[in-house]
């Protein structure tokens, strides 16, 4: 819904309550992007909280992990048991975390107007927007690039109707031959998305399509 989001951006630009953050709306041609991932206490943006954020700059074909922005956040909501299991973070670990009101300005300055890349990025943005609206009265205006869409475009865009779609994180990693990173923390997930992004963008430039191998349909597992 580009019209709706353009409208929303226009309104946000007017209603922003801190003019210092106007830079977020500055648009320019760039080969830079930010790969972003948030770990949260759960999957409901209204209830759950962010507990850690990683943002990794991408410049052209380089992933600048050495310049990554990593932060642990002290959540307001109670830490749920499942997310303890997923992230192996305990409340104790978060005691050193900073409050979102402290983290957000730093993060926004770090991201600037650069496009934001991620896997299922809408969710991360929704989470961030919760704090954005509270603190700045606007939503994150940056252009978004979801690696799921890029992957869909490279693999399923010309697929016959009825093709089984599989856009799971692990599937994309496997199809692109990326090594699975053991721990699912914000940094590794942001890194995974960044890796997917540079490869998929290059495949798009070269007009390369990921083969939907016939073996996807066959239960036979060949290569050992």
């Amino acid at each position: 819904m580009p019209i709706l989001s353009a409208l929303r951006r226009g309104i946000d630009r007017l209603v922003i309550n801190d003019p210092e953050y106007r830079f977020l709306f500055r648009r320019q041609e760039t080969d830079e992007a930010i790969s972003l991932d948030c770990e949260t206490t759960g999957f409901d943006p209204w209830v759950d909280d962010i507990i850690s954020i990683s943002a990794i700059p991408i410049k052209g074909k380089r992933i600048l992990t050495s310049e990554a922005f990593n932060v642990v956040v002290r959540p307001d909501a109670a830490l749920r048991a499942e997310s303890v299991k997923i992230h192996q973070l305990r409340l104790k670990d978060l005691e050193h975390g900073r409050h979102m009101s402290d983290v957000l300005p730093e993060l926004l300055h770090f991201i600037g107007a650069r496009p934001i890349v991620g896997y299922w990025i809408d969710f991360d943005i929704q989470m961030l927007n919760k704090y954005m609206l509270k603190i700045l009265n606007i939503r994150l205006p940056n252009p978004l690039e979801d690696v799921c869409d890029l992957f869909y475009d490279r693999k399923f865009a010309n697929a016959p109707p009825g093709t089984q779609l599989d856009l799971r994180y692990a599937t994309i990693m496997k199809d692109l031959g990326l090594p699975d990173l053991a721990a699912h923390d914000a940094f590794n997930d942001a890194l995974g998305a960044a890796e997917m992004y540079v490869i998929l963008k290059d495949m798009k430039e070269r007009g390369y399509r990921i083969p939907r191998a016939k073996d996807d349909a066959s239960p036979f597992v060949g290569v050992g």
Binding site: K61, R62, L64, L191, D202
Partner: peptide
Amino acid sequence: RAAVDIGYYA
């Protein structure tokens, strides 16, 4: 670890 970046080569 802190110093490494990642490069992509087509």
